[in-house]
Amino acid sequence: MQLKIKIYRGTHQIGGCITEITTEKTRIIIDFGTVLPYRNGKMPKENLVIEGVTYIGHRNCDGILFTHYHGDHTGLLDKAIKGIPMYMGKAAKKIFLLSQAHKNSDSVARIEQIREYEDGKSFSIGDIKITPILTDHSAFDAYMLLIEADGKQVLHTGDFRTHGVKGEMVIPRLAKLRGLVDVMITEGTNLSYTNPVVTSEYLLAEAAETLMERYPYVFVMCGATDIDRLAAFHKASERKNLFLCDAYQMSLLETAAEYGAALTDFYRFDRTRVYFEEMEGVKDGFCMAVRNEKDFSEIMKPYREKHNEQTLIIYAMSEGYLSKHHQAIEKLTSGFRYIIKLHTSGHASEEAIWAAANTVSAKKIIPIHTENPEKIRLGALQDRVVFLEDDEEFNV
């Protein structure tokens, strides 16, 4: 009997990673997403056919597991042959469903059919045992997955970091696996960047709080499902006693509070209210989460025209997003005098990758989700690194 790993996509690109793990009896896929542009702006090839998984014909896959809801991990959901069981964290599924509700009914129906898993609660697909391990990432309710079969253990980190709201729990949880893991498949996103921003979300909140003392009216441009970032700005706006958002954003924050408040007070969005038409009379000002949409442009307009000196715009998004949507964002924020960027990566720093790998001390370590896997530096464990090519099979 032999446990095997195959990375269909992701050995030399960020996003769109697809990992297959098989035994003689069972075949599972971990993450099934759309590709992201290379750093040079070019797009990797999206067309991907995986026999028994992505084309109409004989189904030969026992389960697809999503580590979290970001599109580069879930975006090919509709391409999978119907009938393949899919799995995702309980809160992640709810947020995913809310964020995709505007899509066609068939897509929504497939999301609704996703089976839910929970932190620390093992389950089996065929002769493969899976244990979800809650981790820290810019997506709420993201997981590492411990795979056990044929007397072997494989840890798939998914996307993770240690500088977010849940960052302090990552390494202690991995310490329980020390010396037990045969192969660790680790994300390496930030290996592709020079000096990536990996500031703590807590420090970001402190910086935002200082700025909010100066400006009564603060608009934060942030991804709707970037719950940690929104939690940081909600925390920073305590003195204003009011954090505003639209009804859609409120539904996402309520979900995060439902599942995350027991972990940390950062996920208690008690001062959050759905915005109302007349906001100018709000005592002590406000902080408001906005997105690149027309409705927010109309809301922000009076503050550009009447309260420009008292208004601050905060960009809380990646450089990639800002570049891709430059014209639309410029239209939304044009005319505002005070604009600042406060952002931190959703991915592990090089130091965090080193800490995770050294803590687990797996026999073999495979970097994925990076354009530059060869840049991984693991000190005394460097000789354990295995560099694979897409479609290459590895025997555990």
Rank of each mutant, 00 (worst) to 15 (best):
T67S: 15
Y69G: 01
H70P: 00
G71Y: 04
D72R: 00
K79H: 13
K79T: 04
A80I: 01
I81C: 02
G83E: 08
G83T: 10
I84A: 11
I84M: 14
P85S: 14
M88E: 10
A92T: 02
K94W: 02
I95V: 15
F96Q: 00
S99Q: 07
Q100P: 00
A101W: 10
A101F: 11
A101Y: 09
H102Q: 13
N104Y: 08
N104H: 10
I111C: 06
E112H: 09
Y117S: 02
Y117K: 02
Y117I: 07
D119L: 07
G120N: 11
K121M: 15
S122A: 15
F123M: 01
I125F: 10
G126R: 07
G126T: 12
G126A: 12
D127S: 09
I128A: 10
K129Y: 00
I130N: 01
P132T: 13
L134E: 09
S138A: 12
L145E: 14
L146Y: 01
I147W: 03
E148N: 04
A149H: 05
G151V: 03
L155C: 00
H156V: 15
F160R: 06
R161P: 07
H163Q: 14
G164W: 11
V165K: 08
V165F: 07
E168Y: 06
E168W: 03
P172D: 10
R173L: 07
L174Q: 12
A175K: 15
A175V: 04
L177K: 03
L177A: 03
L177S: 06
V181Y: 04
D182H: 11
D182E: 12
D182W: 02
D182A: 02
M184Y: 06
E187P: 01
T194A: 09
P196F: 06
E201N: 09
Y202W: 13
L203W: 11
L203E: 13
L204V: 11
L204A: 03
